[in-house]
Every structure is written in C-alpha cells, then in structure tokens.
C-alpha cells in the first residue's frame, strides 16, 4: 500500500496547531513547496520534483512595531494564484501575504481592536483560495474576509466580509466557486464566493469544534475534535456517512482530488487513508493506516492529486514525514 520514505529535516519543529502543513506543487517550475508553522515563523522548503535539490528558508511573522513582543502564528498556507505562489500566514495580529519565491511581503491586514482597554483575543485562522481571484481568511469572531488578488502586483483589496459562523473559524476549503467554512462550535457553512458572495447552506454542529474540512465532488469531509469524521452533501447538507475515526482531536484532512482518496490525522498518532466513492449515495472505505509513534500529528497533505504520495507533520518534531505507494 504505502511505504514510509526518508523524511525531510525542517529547520524548526512543528507547532501544535491544526492544519499545520501546506504543500503546493508547481509543475511548470518543477518545484514542490512545503510550509509549516514553528512558533512565530514559517518553515518554508522548496524542493525540486525529484528531491535532489532542497532549499529551506524561514519567514518570520513581521510585527507592526518592534515593541509588541512575539506573535504566535496560527496557520500558514501556500496558495497558487495564476502564475505565482503566495504564502498566507495568520497570527494574533493579522493576516500577512508573501510572494513564496522572493519572500517579499505583498499584503498586511490588521486584526484586533487596539482601542480596547483590556487586551482582547484576536486571530486569523482558516485560509483558502477560491478560483484564481480570491483568498479567503477566517478570524476569531467567525467572520471570513474575502480578499481580491490581482494577477500580479500587490494591489490586494478586501472584497467582502462574510458573517454566518458564530464562533472562531477553524478551517476553510473550496471547490470551484464553492467555499466551506467550519468553526469552534462545529458549524459548517457552504458559501458561493465571487463578485457577490452568498451563504448557500448551514449545517449545525454537534458542539464539538470542527477542526478540519475538505471538499471534493460536492462532498464535504469534516473532521471534529471528538475524533469523528462526517461526509455531507455540499448542495443539500445531508449527512451521508459518519465515522468514529480517531481517538483524539482530528487535526487535518486532505483529499487527493483526482482519485477521491482522503487522509485524516489526529493527535492519537494515527493517520488513516480512506477511499471516498462519490455518487448519489456516496460510500467510504478504509484503505490504510499507520501509527507515527509518539508524535501528535498536526498536519497532512497529499503531494500529488493522484494520491500516490503524502506527507504528515507532528508537534515538537522537526521532520516532514513522507509516504508513497509501493
């Protein structure tokens, strides 16, 4: 099935944050980029497709002023926007975007109200690209900020702010113009994102945070803090499948979009690979599992959309662990 490959050593260990691994493959340039959060900086690795050349970098979260102490990053994601790859990072201070090749900053959006006398918690969490024009980012209040990204240059503008989730956003995912958001109360909302945005559907949560979400073939796969995974129809909201998948908090879910393979990882040290079969009555089958001993897994992503290879990361561990079909 799958075989564990030689790991890639990161410059710093992976922080305990859900969805803490982002992979972007640029076939034209022949580069695979990996991003993980380490405290207040992002470990960014660019490697050639065959893995012979590896270029690790660290991009710190920039501060609005030097006196504010250190900032914890909550998520980092690489998104393909036309010809360029953008690194989006969210912290307690705001949203930052960088050109992933040159590490130059493209955009800064401040979060939080500094006028309040008592410090208030604020953060961005949940990042996804929609079509090739928008990057959506969630925040602590449950809002989703829709940012318009030009084909080139740094004229990034706020297009709209979506309100619908009533607790902090955990994760965002998209398919074509559809975007799915999930939050700390387990609520899942389906949106249409474009020149005008619209809430299409709301699936009430079980009270447990929905920490990771993915969408494929109009099927939503959601992972919860209770260890459950649920498959919903993204047009009707109908619950098709429920899996008692993990013994701890699920931290990441990803789908290999060509073949419908799903990976789920959790803090119980297990990774599971599932085969999702689409259709009016979708089904799911357990294909593979592995235990990464003594590592609380925090991130998982397929490297190729055919599901032939994937990588996982874990807390306090500075390896990118690879698996490939054997």
């Amino acid at each position: 099935m799958y075989r564990k490959e030689k790991p890639l050593l990161l410059k710093g260990s992976t922080s305990a944050l859900a969805n803490n691994l982002s992979i972007e493959v640029n076939l034209e340039k022949g580069i695979i980029s990996y991003a993980t959060v380490h405290k207040s900086l992002v470990n960014l690795v660019s490697a050639s497709l065959d893995g012979t050349s590896v270029n690790p970098r660290q991009i710190p979260c920039k501060e609005p002023s030097a006196s504010q102490g250190f900032t914890m990053i909550l998520q980092a994601k690489l998104v393909q926007m036309g010809a360029r790859t953008i690194l989006v990072m969210t912290s307690q201070k705001g949203i930052q975007m960088y050109d992933a090749d040159s590490s130059t900053m493209l955009f800064w959006y401040a979060l939080g109200d500094v006028t309040q006398a008592e410090p208030q918690v604020s953060f961005g969490r949940g990042i996804c690209a929609v079509l090739s024009d928008y990057i959506c980012v969630g925040n602590h209040k449950g809002e989703i900020i829709v940012l318009h990204i030009p084909a080139r240059g740094s004229n990034i503008t706020v297009s709209e702010t979506l309100t619908g989730n009533s607790a902090a956003i955990c994760d965002l995912a998209s398919e074509n113009e559809k975007m799915v958001s999930c939050d700390d109360l387990g609520t899942v909302i389906v949106w249409k994102v474009g020149d005008t945005c619209q809430q299409l559907l709301k699936i009430n949560g079980p009270g447990y945070p929905c920490s990771a979400v993915s969408i494929w073939n109009d099927l939503i796969v959601a992972g919860y803090s209770s260890g459950h995974m649920r498959v919903f129809n993204a047009s009707t909201g109908r619950l098709h499948i429920e899996i008692a998948a993990h013994a701890r908090w699920i931290t990441a879910i990803d789908i290999a979009k060509k073949v419908g393979e799903v990976i789920s990882v959790a803090e119980d040290t297990f990774l599971h690979i599932w085969q999702l079969k689409p259709g009016p009555e979708p089904e799911i089958e357990h294909k593979f599992s592995d235990c990464v001993s003594d590592v609380q897994l925090q991130g998982a992503s397929f490297i190729s959309e055919d599901g032939r290879a994937f990588a996982v990361t874990g807390y306090d561990n500075n390896e990118l662990m690879f698996y490939s079909v054997c």
Partner: peptide
Amino acid sequence: IPWGTELPGAIRVYTPTGEQKKTMQFNCGG
C-alpha cells in the same frame, strides 16, 4: 479516549431520511 467521545472503529452510512443504512467496522490501529 476522552470523556464523551466514541471508540474509533465504526463507519455508519445514512439514508436520505437520516436513518442508519448500514454500519461497517475498520481497524483503527489502537
């Protein structure tokens, strides 16, 4: 496992009316 959660291992498939159509088991490893 944490209080209030379910032992891993079950896959439940639901009908359009929300009834359980079938349940399968998988080896969760632990």
